[in-house]
Structures are given as structure tokens and as C-alpha cells.
Simulated scan of single mutants.
Amino acid sequence: MNETQGYAVFFFPQALEALGEAIRPYLLEGPAGPHVLCKEIDTGGAFTEMTLEGRNADGREMTLELMVPGNMLRMIVSAHGEGSFGFGPRVARAVAKPAGASVPAPAEPVPAQPPAPQTPAPVIATDAKPE
């Protein structure tokens, strides 16, 4: 089972603009955009608290708590596994076909037509009396 490695926190563009240079040292760039990678996160109050682990200028390990208003967050993604975190395009897998099998041409879409109105069955009157 994969253990949680942390969380990727994505901000609204307006939030990044408002936070300006103060948030830049904590941002990582990725295919899905800039995000903060944190070890723990607490979304229980008006401010979202993120715990980041890193090294200071002397190379010593340190823990940092970053708190931002919760309404600045666009999305939080839990990062699992041993590999690096990131996004990539999803590619549809090709279905294996036997050798020599021909691929049918794509069918043209058929416009949807409403069903034809149904006429009620005619009622046949008879002079016969039920017995």
C-alpha cells in the first residue's frame, strides 16, 4: 500500500497575484501549474495551515508552517507513491487486433430523429351484445 507523501496545494491565479513575492519561494512549477508541496495540511479554520519540510541556508532541516486564507485555494491533491508528483496527459490504450484484421472506417453520426407519432388503434363498434 502506498503511503501519503504529502499534498500539492494549487491556488487561484488572483491569490498568487495577491500573495506576490511572499509565496514565490514555496512554489514548485509543474505541468498543471504552480503549487506548494507540503507534508501536512489543516483546512479546519479560516486559514489553511500547511506544514512544509525543507532546509535553511545552512543546510539544516527545518519545518515551516505556511498559513493562507482558505478561499485562495483552488485544489488540494494528495500525492501518493514513491515516484515524483506530477501530472501528465492521459493516452488512450489501443485495443490489440489480430494480425491481418482490418480496421473499420469510422461511422458517420446519424442525426437523431423523433419517433413517428403513433395513431391509436381504431375502435370497431359492433351490434353484438355481450352474453
Rank of each mutant, 00 (worst) to 15 (best):
97 K>M: 12
57 A>Q: 14
35 H>G: 03
57 A>V: 11
20 G>R: 05
118 Q>L: 03
86 G>W: 04
99 A>I: 08
16 L>F: 04
54 G>Y: 06
30 G>C: 06
47 F>Q: 13
24 R>C: 00
94 A>K: 09
115 P>S: 10
49 E>G: 02
68 V>E: 02
45 G>W: 01
65 E>R: 08
2 N>L: 08
27 L>W: 12
6 G>L: 02
78 S>C: 11
125 A>Q: 12
37 L>V: 02
127 D>F: 08
69 P>Q: 07
37 L>N: 09
29 E>A: 15
40 E>C: 06
9 V>K: 11
49 E>T: 14
38 C>N: 04
89 P>R: 00
87 F>L: 10
84 S>W: 00
102 S>P: 15
65 E>A: 05
109 P>A: 12
18 A>S: 14
122 P>M: 04
7 Y>A: 03
39 K>C: 00
4 T>Y: 04
64 L>A: 00
47 F>M: 14
110 V>A: 11
34 P>H: 07
2 N>C: 02
2 N>G: 04
123 V>W: 05
33 G>A: 10
30 G>R: 03
123 V>D: 03
125 A>N: 10
32 A>C: 03
39 K>I: 00
107 A>Q: 15
53 E>L: 10
61 E>S: 12
91 V>W: 00
56 N>A: 08
78 S>L: 11
114 P>V: 06
66 L>H: 09
75 M>Y: 06
88 G>P: 01
103 V>R: 09
129 K>M: 09
89 P>N: 01
52 L>M: 11
113 Q>Y: 05
16 L>H: 07
24 R>A: 15
62 M>L: 14
37 L>C: 01
93 R>H: 00
16 L>K: 07
69 P>H: 05
1 M>A: 14
9 V>A: 05
105 A>Y: 09
112 A>N: 08
21 E>A: 15
48 T>K: 06
99 A>N: 05
13 P>N: 12
54 G>M: 05
63 T>L: 09
32 A>E: 11
108 E>G: 09
128 A>R: 14
130 P>V: 07
10 F>P: 15
77 V>T: 07
107 A>D: 12
66 L>A: 06
79 A>E: 13
3 E>D: 12
130 P>G: 04
77 V>C: 02
116 A>M: 09
110 V>Y: 05
92 A>D: 01
76 I>S: 05
43 T>G: 06
98 P>V: 10
82 E>K: 12
54 G>F: 06
92 A>F: 00
18 A>P: 00
101 A>W: 07
127 D>H: 05
49 E>N: 12
125 A>C: 02
31 P>I: 01
32 A>G: 08
7 Y>F: 15
6 G>Q: 08
70 G>T: 15
15 A>R: 13
127 D>Y: 06
14 Q>R: 11
29 E>Q: 13
73 L>N: 04
96 A>F: 10
104 P>D: 05
120 P>I: 02
111 P>G: 04
12 F>R: 03
103 V>D: 10
81 G>P: 04
9 V>C: 05
35 H>S: 08
70 G>F: 00
119 T>S: 07
114 P>G: 08
6 G>H: 10
23 I>H: 03
119 T>A: 13
65 E>V: 11
67 M>F: 02
67 M>G: 04
85 F>Y: 14
64 L>G: 00
89 P>Y: 01
103 V>W: 05
45 G>S: 14
105 A>R: 15
69 P>Y: 05
6 G>F: 05
115 P>Y: 07
102 S>Q: 12
62 M>E: 15
84 S>G: 11
72 M>A: 11
80 H>N: 14
44 G>T: 11
82 E>I: 10
64 L>V: 09
